[in-house]
Amino acid sequence: MLIMTGVNKTFNAGTVNERKALCGVDFTLKDGDFVTIVGSNGAGKSTLFNVISGTYYVDFGRILLDGRDVTYLPEYKRSAFIGHLFQDPLKGTAPHMTIEENLAVAYLHSSGKNRIFGRIKKADREFFREKLSELNMGLEDRMKTPVGILSGGQRQALTLLMATMVTPSLLLLDEHTAALDPATADKVLELTKKIVREREISCLMITHNMHQALSLGNRTIMMDSGRILLDVSGEERNRMSVQDLLDKFAESTGEALDNDRMLLGGNG
């Protein structure tokens, strides 16, 4: 369970470029929740993710994950139990290392098998093979291939696998399919749904696709100017259409959504 209370984050405080990215965000994520997040550019969605994962520390407020106060825990320590996927599919993997070595870096660190002079064992290799075959991309037969020559979709699928190989307490998906072609994006999204469902991982997902925002997961929140404007779940959400969501946004901000991608993606 993730509990955020009164989280504030301001960039360039005290200068002309001051930007309040998060203004007193209170947010609770129950175990097994799959929440989609929408909002225009600069709404604070990515900043929200970055303060959860520890890329930035908050100015005020508290972040509790599974009862543990992680507010000032460094990023590398949080990543043992928080998975974070980015839009850029090249970010999550090391291109000059093989598939097997990438998996080993992710696995041997967070599985508690952290013997620093340990090596990839036969059992580990079998485990990686089994996990890779779940991706249905034929990667299990290319474990000695450098990741750099894989496609963006394959790399993003691999990143997803690395983030979830040891079940994380929380999975952050920052538009992780937005840079992929539609067919590959669907495939990676299906994989995401499957993994999240099977392992009951609590998950937050940023999307610009309004249809996706309502059809995926069990709860949707909308952000604007560093605040959570809308938080719907259950029956209310089931009855909502994309147009309702857009109307709600216009209603609470007094302006229409400024992002063409969101509108165009509405039927997608």
Binding site: K91, V105, M162
Partner: peptide, 22 residues
């Protein structure tokens, strides 16, 4: 080794490293 692979990953992909508890 795990440590050696982590050192290699640090130079190869800083983003990946910060996301994998190294």
């Amino acid at each position: 080794t795990t440590l050696g692979l982590s050192v290699r990953a640090t130079g190869d992909s800083p983003d990946m490293v910060s996301a994998s508890s190294i």
